[in-house]
Design a protein around this nucleic acid. Structure first.
Length: 549
RNA sequence: AGGGGCGUAGCUCAGUGGUAGAGCAGCGGCCUUUUAAGCCGAAGGUCGUGGGUUCGAUCCCCACCGCCCCUACCA
């Protein structure tokens, strides 16, 4: 590639990309040329800085006008120009860096005519490095009086409108980089997301867990019920599934003697997309030998409480106008939850004993459906075809789940909907499993792992026989083999990181906490397979996105 | 997938069956303590795309594309 810029004029190519707004893009290209003509590189290599804007604002927040005058503080600070208020031969600007905005004051009589000429060729969005001393303006704003100023990177495209910012949701996701520059809230969400994941790692590392990475492309589907993405490996000529869960691999590791493992990584499910579902999502899964589901509930409570304290500064925080409190976690068995939240208008309310009795769940589901139809609520479909356990699951979702705003563990699930969990010693119809609900969302799912290989094989076979596009197509024989070698009593849990981040950042859509959520290709944008291979004469296609035709 | 909404200047938005408007950004001019700086001036548009109705469509109708919301499956 030709890199002639440093030694001479820009190499002009008539097929290079241009972007909307074209007039502003061309204007900035011209400014760039003029800057280079003045002898300033537009893309220099580094800048020796002493502070970030944020550091200055924090460190000198308390310094008074007099203090800054009597003992001069000289700083060199880099940042992106995000506001510009020129006044002829002087100008105020704000530069952004490290999440803060610092005002700078540039005067021709201080920086000199030459530098001021350069400054006037700078545009909103350019990166600059300034050296000067701190002072306070008439309005007492801590600012840098610039002695020296250099361009650190020329920006060829303008920033979004300064007052409204970037409000279009689609554009915010497609051009997340602009969203991050302009919208404080977006930046904060992702900084917090990083903190949350860091704290989770600390939490588990401190408990002697090992972080592991297991395959994301699986030859056999397993570990959850969900429709997969399917792909193909050319060299091995092999059908592969993007993983829907890491579970079966992680438990193999416990068989292998890694008694405490966790993995934070993506799962992929080829299903619906809405405010709390995406085709790829980040899951924390962890497994602990010689433990059971009750211990995990305690541990989850501890984890969530410490996260809220560290991230939000308190166990209480606001989510969608309600205060969520991680100081207390309710625990209800699934049957008790149905009893507790049974709608008053659907009397008589069932009892726990009735739910446990033969034929009970069916009778109760039918009672619910009478009520639901009268109230014009969605009834439970196909009640006749569902097992008692499935009916209990359906009843729970219909009756109780929407009410679970404060953190609530629902435990003791029907065995039929928990194919990987151990049953209770005193009741083989119930699995030692729980889910944690907060703000109506399921955020965690844990259980005492089924480690009886014969039982597990039977349950796998039953699933395969039952069929359906979400059911596994074949028994994972190697997993049964691993269990046959012996999985110690183990408890395992998955926590949806995206949803947890939603809660702790008061974000009401999962896409708000994912950096580049998938959107449909813009019309006119080349589909993936149409993009020419590198090396081919590849004048880039007319990216619809505003690029020149 | 079904129902509803939206799509107008680079951005945020008005608007009308008779060929289009504001603020901000950009351009030219004035301006050395401003902070949505100010003042003056000029420019900027295939009104999402394609059909149809009409003398005439950005507006009415149909289809398509994209985004958002709700409902159904899923964590």
């Amino acid at each position: 590639m030709i890199r002639a810029r440093e030694n001479g004029p820009i190499v002009e190519r008539d097929d290079s990309l241009e972007f909307e707004p074209l007039d502003q893009y061309q204007q900035r290209r011209q400014n760039l040329k003029d800057i280079e003509a003045l002898g300033h590189p537009a893309y220099p290599r580094k800048f020796a800085w002493t502070h970030t804007p944020k550091e200055i604002l924090e460190k000198y927040a308390g310094s008074t006008v007099e203090e800054l005058e009597s003992s001069r503080v000289t700083v060199s600070v880099p940042g992106r120009i995000v506001a510009l208020r020129p006044h002829g031969k002087a100008a105020f600007a704000h530069i952004a860096g490290d999440g803060a905005r610092l005002q700078i004051y540039v005067r021709q009589d201080i920086v000199g005519e030459e530098a001021y000429k350069l400054f006037k060729l700078m545009d909103l969005g350019d990166f600059v490095g300034v050296t000067g001393h701190l002072f306070r303006t008439k309005t007492n704003e801590l600012s840098v009086k610039v002695d020296k100023l250099e361009l650190l990177t020329k920006s060829l495209l303008p920033l979004p409108e300064k007052w409204h910012g970037l409000a279009d949701v689609e554009l915010r996701y497609r051009r997340r980089y602009l969203d991050l520059i302009v919208n404080e809230k977006a930046r904060e969400v992702f900084i917090r997301r990083a903190q949350i994941i860091r704290e989770i790692r600390h939490f588990f590392d401190a408990r002697n867990y090992s972080e592991v990475e297991t395959p994301m492309m699986h030859p056999i589907l397993g570990g959850a019920t969900a429709r997969p993405f399917i792909t193909h490996h050319n060299t091995l000529d092999m059908k592969l599934y993007l993983r829907i869960a890491p579970e079966l691999y992680l438990k193999r590791l416990v068989v292998g003697g890694l008694d405490r493992v966790y993995e934070i990584n993506r799962n992929f499910r080829n299903e619906g997309i809405d405010a709390i579902h995406l085709q790829e999502f980040t899951m924390l899964e962890f497994y602990q030998a010689y433990s059971d589901y009750r211990e995990l509930m305690d541990m989850t409570e501890e984890l969530f409480r410490s996260l809220a304290e560290k991230i939000c500064g308190s166990t209480k925080f606001k989510y969608e106008e309600t205060e969520i409190d991680f100081g207390h976690f309710e625990r209800l068995s699934m049957r008790d939850a149905i009893v507790k939240f049974w709608p008053a208008a659907a009397r008589p309310a069932p009892t726990s004993a009735e739910l446990a009795a033969a034929g009970g769940p069916l009778a109760i589901a039918e009672r619910f459906n009478v009520y639901a139809r009268a109230q014009n609520i969605d009834p439970i479909l196909n009640v006749g075809k569902l097992s008692a356990g499935e009916l209990i699951g359906e009843l729970f979702e219909a009756v109780a789940e929407p009410h679970l705003v404060q953190p609530t563990f629902i435990y003791d699930f029907p065995i039929e909907i928990s194919p990987l969990s151990k049953t209770r010693a005193d009741d083989p119809s119930i699995a030692e499993r729980f889910e944690l609900f907060i703000a109506g969302m399921e955020v965690a799912n844990g259980f005492s792992e089924l480690n009886d290989p014969i039982d597990q094989e039977n349950r796998f076979r039953a699933q395969v026989e039952k069929g359906g596009h979400e059911a596994p197509k074949e028994v994972d024989v190697d997993y049964i083999r691993a269990l046959s070698h012996g999985l110690p009593p183990t408890a395992g849990e998955g926590i949806g990181i995206d949803r947890l981040v939603m809660l702790l950042t008061d974000s009401h859509a999962i896409r708000e906490v994912v950096l580049f959520p998938l959107l449909r290709a813009e019309s006119g944008e080349p589909a993936a397979e149409e993009i020419p291979a590198p090396g081919a004469a590849n004048k880039p296609n007319s990216a619809a996105d505003g690029a020149k035709k």
